[in-house]
Nucleic acid binder design. Structure first.
Lengths: 205, 205
DNA sequence: AAATTTCTTGACCGGTTGGTAAACTTGTGG
DNA sequence: CCACAAGTTTACCAACCGGTCAAGAAATTT
């Protein structure tokens, strides 16, 4: 029983404070990584005292894995929504677009994920195996079918997915670098235009 | 005078030990990030005692910035070698290839860099501004010229560079994820084939 | 309003971390 | 071989960190 909830029925205060803590922790973990984050920072950011945080969560790691669990669902959702019966090129472009939008709307989540993977996914390996892998396998099969049907240009499906993740998440994970090199406020719009061209040219049969 | 060298002439022992320390620190920083790394870990990995490490470096941060400085040069070298007088498409494909090879040969450096940028480049912002930015500006101009001459398909030069960095470094930075999804040992070969197709299709006028 | 559960906090603890002081050992030049 | 510098180590410290505890403040129930 490592998980988070006091099992019974969460009161309004519990709901509010747990949400506060997770939001503050997302800030801190995304910015400093797991080891770089401290409970004091999370306490300060959430406006609660440190012992009070430990009243709602079993410990630092418990907060972290709770965030990671929540993240995994949201992260995989766009991939689940790829429609087998839709137009292949449109479906993939839509997936790219959604991933890019998530990179803009949820940069903290993207960086939390990047931090975890960078350090070898020590607290996420099971999730990757049980959640991500089968979904990627299915999607790769689907893309292979589309290619076999001549509806997409032949490319390695897995490397295609890697490139989509890399190019879209880059704008969140490497934001510090992007901002040094691009002062324009239209970064994401330009990025979408670029990525649409990129994948349209790659995948048009 | 924050830097690293005892100014005069480094003895053989100094050279050897400083190299040992930096190599061990690269391991540790790349794996755990700046705050996650400890001097004791670096000491153990380098075979030296902790005070002895502090005899050669001013402190943890000094080791880190020394690594970052060394890294910046090596990291920018492939971009400097893009030849204005070469064939545009070949030059860019060669750049992609070199970056991908660096991702395979120097994954620690890639992850060290990724960690630093992820956390907002707190110890590297000056380097990005003074080293990276002018080089990227020049390269973006060059690519724009090539496009204006009709020798490359029209794309945003900066987003092109972002995508190259993202897709190539992804194989080092997200290796833990890649390995979950690809068991084949030919990951990098397949990646090169994919990326060559990707950028050839994108950039062929 | 009394009783009971839920929530919050200040004080504290053991372990870790970056860094220091000083003594000791090793290398080196005359 | 001696003197002096260069290199190394043992012991230590103050600050920090994750986490505990017991007691008090708020809600909630009866």
């Amino acid at each position: 029983m490592t998980s988070s909830a006091p099992a019974k029925k969460p009161t309004r205060i519990q709901l509010r404070n747990r949400k506060r803590i997770l939001d503050a922790a997302l800030d801190v973990f995304a910015q400093h990584g797991y080891r770089g984050a401290t409970l004091d920072q999370i306490a300060a950011a959430s406006g609660l005292s440190k012992p009070n945080i430990l009243y709602y969560f079993g410990g630092k790691e418990d907060i972290h894995v709770t965030l990671l669990n929540q993240l995994m669902d949201a992260w995989l959702a766009p991939l689940r929504e790829v429609d087998r019966d839709g137009d292949p090129l449109q479906e993939i472009l839509r997936y790219v677009h959604r991933k890019l939008e998530m990179s803009r709307e949820f940069p903290r989540e993207s960086r939390l994920f990047a931090n975890e993977i960078l350090q070898g996914a020590p607290r996420m390996a099971p999730h990757l195996n049980s959640g991500l892998r089968p979904l990627v396998d299915d999607t790769a099969d689907l893309i292979s079918e589309w290619i076999a049907q001549g509806r997409l240009a032949p490319v390695d499906p897995r490397h295609l997915l890697f490139s989509i993740w890399a190019t879209t998440q880059h704008y969140a994970d490497f934001e510090a670098q992007v901002q040094v090199l691009m002062q324009e406020p239209s970064v994401h719009d330009d990025a979408w235009q670029f990525l649409e061209t990129l994948y349209r040219r790659l995948l048009t049969p």
